[in-house]
């Protein structure tokens, strides 16, 4: 079974040379730390920066240079700043190659819910609805089950939706799955996790074809 860092490491393998990538808050933010060093990738943050670098050294933080999680960051050579409308032109206009975000629930048809628990948690969608409505390459990073042990990979989302039929790939602490017309197709198992365990933790239709390899991290 993977921890959050493991999920980030596995997703980092999906990042290819020349990609512009938008990382969501939480596990997705960690992905930047594990991308291969021999490829060129630029990270976009929807608050208006392309070419994000690592956190600043102590004492060098600047309140005017933050990411979408409101964390202080730095920029790399070649970086640029822009306004919010232009930022979402990059996203809506499909100029961003890969979007990685977290979720509370994903359905077997690719629906995603990650912004609201009615009557309980109402933080808002931020840029998530714009991202999922336009991005062609969306990977969800999340735990396979919630704190109560219930599956987050469902037949139908129970929470208010963020987007419909948009998720293509999911990386959890247990597995890598692809969203197909028939349901969640199991691609890889996390180290030490059996197909049976993944079946048990998946409420939606799980498609298992042949031998399922273990992830290589």
């Amino acid at each position: 079974m993977l921890d959050k860092t493991g999920i980030a490491k596995r997703i980092a393998k999906e990042v290819q040379d020349g990609y512009y990538v938008n990382l969501g808050i939480g596990i997705p933010t960690l992905v930047a730390n594990y991308v291969r060093e021999d490829i060129e990738v630029e990270f976009q943050s929807e608050n208006g920066v392309l070419g994000m670098g690592p956190f600043p050294f102590e004492g060098e933080e600047d309140a005017d240079i933050i990411n979408a999680g409101k964390q202080t960051i730095t920029t790399l050579p070649g970086a640029s700043f822009f306004d919010s409308a232009m930022s979402f032109s990059m996203i809506r206009g499909k100029h961003v190659d890969l979007t990685i975000l977290g979720a509370m629930e994903v359905a077997e048809n690719g629906d995603i819910a990650n912004w609201k628990i009615p009557g309980k948690m109402v933080k808002g969608m931020g840029g998530a609805m714009d991202l999922v409505a336009s991005a062609e390459n969306i990977i969800v990073a999340m735990m396979h089950t919630n704190r109560a042990g219930e599956s987050k990979l469902l037949k139908r989302c129970s929470l208010p939706l963020t987007g419909v039929g948009c998720v293509k790939k999911i990386v959890t602490n247990l597995a890598v799955l692809e969203v197909t017309k028939e349901g969640f197709k199991l691609l890889e198992r996390a180290p030490g996790v059996s197909v049976e365990e993944i079946k048990k933790a998946t409420e939606g239709n799980l498609i298992v074809e042949g031998e399922i390899p273990e992830m290589i991290l």
Binding site: P54, F55, P56, F57, E58, G59, E60, E61, A63, D64, I66, G69, K70, Q71, T72, I73
Partner: peptide
């Protein structure tokens, strides 16, 4: 004041 909401830094 330019308050920082989430101060994140790395060590040298």
């Amino acid at each position: 004041e330019k308050r920082i909401e989430q101060l994140t830094v790395r060590k040298r």
